[in-house]
């Protein structure tokens, strides 16, 4: 997925946009519908749980605000990583790729802690509709973050082996597109699930 055809970047394209990047935009459009359907399901079932725990009893806004901040910072690191790779500064590039991945890992760690805490508090996947919709929605997002972290670490290893340079800037740019998209989705989830109860 990552590096296949940097030759493609040199190809003539009718729209003047790299084909892989265009495909990625199409993919993101598709992902919007995926998360849109999950968020709609969450909203449709809001307040329809037959038994507790209910959202207001269990959601920890300060903690999740920290996770959200962490993810936003990872987007910043991603921007720095791309800029470094584009100008050929692979030292900085490697650093910021790693920082982005680590911030992603911190977010996942937070989600793991949050999930296990909720289970401990009595909210399982099948406890009520809130549990089901919450875990499936945030879990799907977490899976996206996981894929992003693996992707970033793959790029980082490539960079360590000296196989990532300005010639592959498009690969890093697409990774960044994905990463930013996953962040934006989290902002929406954070707002819908945590802030507007």
């Amino acid at each position: 997925m990552a590096h296949d055809t940097h030759a493609a970047t040199h190809h003539h394209t009718s729209m003047g946009l790299d084909s892989r990047k265009m495909a990625f935009w199409a993919f993101i459009g598709s992902e919007c519908l995926l998360f849109g359907s999950l968020i709609s399901t969450y909203l449709v079932y809001k307040g329809r749980s037959l038994v507790g725990p209910y959202p207001h009893e269990i959601l920890n806004i300060p903690f999740t605000s920290f996770s959200t901040f962490d993810l936003l910072m990872s987007s910043l690191a991603m921007v720095l990583a791309l800029a470094a790779v584009q100008r050929g500064d692979m030292k900085q590039g490697k650093l910021w790729l790693l920082v982005t991945a680590l911030l992603g890992l911190v977010f996942l760690g937070g989600q793991f802690w949050e999930f296990s805490h909720f289970v401990h508090e009595g909210l399982g996947l099948t406890t009520n509709l809130f549990g089901s919709t919450f875990y499936v929605l945030t879990g799907t997002h977490g899976a996206h973050v996981t894929i992003g972290v693996i992707w970033l670490l793959t790029l980082w290893v490539q960079a360590l082996r000296g196989k990532l340079g300005p010639a592959n800037a498009m690969t890093v740019e697409i990774t960044g597109l994905y990463w930013h998209f996953v962040d934006v989705v989290w902002i929406v989830i954070f707002t819908v699930v945590y802030l507007i109860q």
């Binding site: 995926l34 999950l38 996947l125 099948t126």
Partner: peptide, 30 residues
């Protein structure tokens, strides 16, 4: 690319109902 994600979500929710015991489409759990 816009319609298939929707059916994917529906199928995933159904899969959770059948495999993991959630109640996305089951009145017995709301």
């Amino acid at each position: 690319i816009t319609a298939f994600p929707v059916i994917t979500v529906a199928l995933v929710l159904l899969m959770f109902d059948r495999f993991f015991g959630t109640h996305f489409f089951l009145p017995s759990g709301g």
